[in-house]
Amino acid sequence: MTEEFAISVKGLTKVFGDRTVVDHFDMEVPKGAIYGFLGPNGSGKTTTIRMMCGLLTPDGGTGQCLGLDILSEQEAIKENVGYMTQKFSLYEDLTIRENLDFIARMYRVPSRRERVKQALIDLGLSDRANQLAGTLSGGWKQRLALAACMIHDPSLLLLDEPTAGVDPKARRDFWDEIRRLSAKGVTVLVSTHYMDEAVQCDFIAYIAYGKKLIAGPARDIPKMIGLHTWQVTGPDIGDLEMALRSEPDVGQVARFGQVLHVSGTDEKALEAVANRYRAKQSHKWMLKEAELEEAFIYLMAGATDNFLGAAK
């Protein structure tokens, strides 16, 4: 049973001071899957990932990574995991080549020189190999860090916002690479704030205020939330937006240029609202399938309420 999961944690909890930053977090990542990890800033993604690879000691919970216990077998886990930190944390006063070489030596990578050379070629940084890492642009730093954490061919990649600040072309290349690795059986857990990346994942978990709100196959998420969405176009869209926001039956209004996405969980009530406005004004209302983005914006709004409720 445990063999089919690369990561399987239960009740993972971390407390900093008197704040429970990760609260009884469960997660099961199937082997070979691309698993998206989403949540607003400060929700506990980084903390959770750190606990999974043995960088932080959980205050509660159990789990395993690659069949190894996360509480007692961190050393063996580290041998087979590639972890990319959210903040650039390679050595800025070492060159690109020296950084890759150092990390490769930490993992005792066989035929290291060849491997580093290949990594430099893959990165497209061969001719800048002797440049100090600290002088790279932000996006290039991300790409270097990514190359570094994959240099020992780990079977599990934990990537904490790997594409933050990376240009669209490089991001596409990055995701091509991720899918290629996934096809080879490498498991990837990736945290991100980008929806276009979330939809590329096989599975998604959404965390807010340290609690997992929802998890499942990416395409099922909107259905799991039970969100219904109308797309509205027409004149004076700004005024309509204001009016709709004060409607109690409308869960959320999201504006995309001249288009409004009006969502709610109560299908009937939402339809009633749509009919009411259609009768009054000349806007075009169209029922559409809820997308991940709406689902997450909805979740975030909901989580704030949950949290306030809990805090009282």
């Binding site: 960088l55 580290k78 041998e79 972890y83 930190t85 650039f88 944390s89 930490m106 993992y107 570094a148």
Partner: peptide
Amino acid sequence: EKGTMETLIATPVR
């Protein structure tokens, strides 16, 4: 302070 410790101890170094 620079955060490189995180990368360092994420490796199997003792």
